[in-house]
Amino acid sequence: MTVISKKVCLLGDFAVGKTSLVRRFVYNLFNDKYISTIGVKVSRKTVAVPRDDDVVELTMMLWDLSASEEFNQVRASYLRGAAGAVLVCDLTRPETLDSLQAYTDDLLRVSPDAQLIILAANKRDLADQQQLTPAQIEAVAAGLRVPYYLTSAKTGDEVESLFRHLGRLLVASS
């Protein structure tokens, strides 16, 4: 079994559910307060990804970045060396989808190699509050040329699939 590690950043506006995705489905060691103090918290998600006749144990080091403006300056440092990213938007807030392009630009400016990006349209469990349609999500994803998932950190829908998909992309590229 091959063991590899990759750095993955979680990007998205405030309160879109990045930390919830991380908190529920990845291994945590540090308190969430780090996000508000230094603007980032590092967590780990390990997935087994088949490759040829082998299985690769991929450890994704997830950098959950604060969306607060006060960390704009330091955020660029946190993006350095990322192999991929999860863009997160909130299905109940259309503006969170619009800002994904800016996050992607920031990421690619700092880490041009971070081509492996996946979009998570979160809070699908709030069906009666959704203001974004799957078509809109698909359109933005197509514009960014990234796959997308409609997820719910609350129910766990599609979260595991999202990380496995990202894992496959990362392994395939290495």
Binding site: K7, F30, I38, V42, S43, M61, Y78
Partner: peptide
């Protein structure tokens, strides 16, 4: 076994100190 998490946060703190 969390040495990888520690190294990640340590790097974040380093970057933060450097930028700040």
């Amino acid at each position: 076994p969390d040495s990888d998490l520690i190294s990640g946060m340590l790097t974040a703190i380093r970057d933060f100190a450097q930028d700040a």
